[in-house]
């Protein structure tokens, strides 16, 4: 079963305000999860996305010039910060990965408890067909 595990930006607690040690331990925590998923043959892809500042929002009617909005701060917390695409044995395992990601240490080593979104990726039809 394939899932997309998604993390959003935290505009209220931007990582640039963290101490270097806090950043380091957060990174080590994430690195360990990444490593574990890689070695288990669960990880399909993982990417980090550039920040809200580098984001463009495009809307078009297909006729006139598209409307392009530069990084919109009020909406920044809706923005995806990064994702993992995984192929795991169960939804339970996807949730376990998300929970560990959410528990990554933040400022002062306290867990960030960041909400992590887990969504199934559409697949082939079940065998009843």
């Amino acid at each position: 079963m394939k899932y997309l595990i998604m993390m959003t930006h935290s505009p209220d607690d931007p990582v640039q305000d963290w101490t270097p040690d806090d950043v380091k331990s957060s990174w080590a925590h994430m690195q360990q999860i990444h490593q574990e998923m890689t070695e288990a043959g669960e990880l399909i892809a993982a990417e980090k996305l550039a920040g809200p500042e580098a984001t463009k929002i495009v809307a078009s009617d297909g006729v006139s010039a598209p409307v392009i909005t530069d990084g919109v701060y009020p909406e920044a917390k809706e923005l995806l910060a990064g994702f993992w695409m995984v192929d795991v044995d169960s939804e339970q395992r996807a949730i376990e990965i998300a929970a560990r990601t959410s528990a990554a240490p933040g400022p002062g080593g306290a867990p960030t408890r960041k909400p992590i979104v887990v969504r199934p990726i559409m697949d082939a039809p079940p065998p009843e067909w």
């Binding site: 288990a40 043959g41 892809a45 192929d87």
Partner: peptide, 15 residues
């Protein structure tokens, strides 16, 4: 067949 990268599958088999 399982639509995953070869390296992912190699790791899974090796595990």
């Amino acid at each position: 067949a399982f639509l995953v990268p070869e390296d992912t599958m190699a790791k899974r088999i090796s595990r």
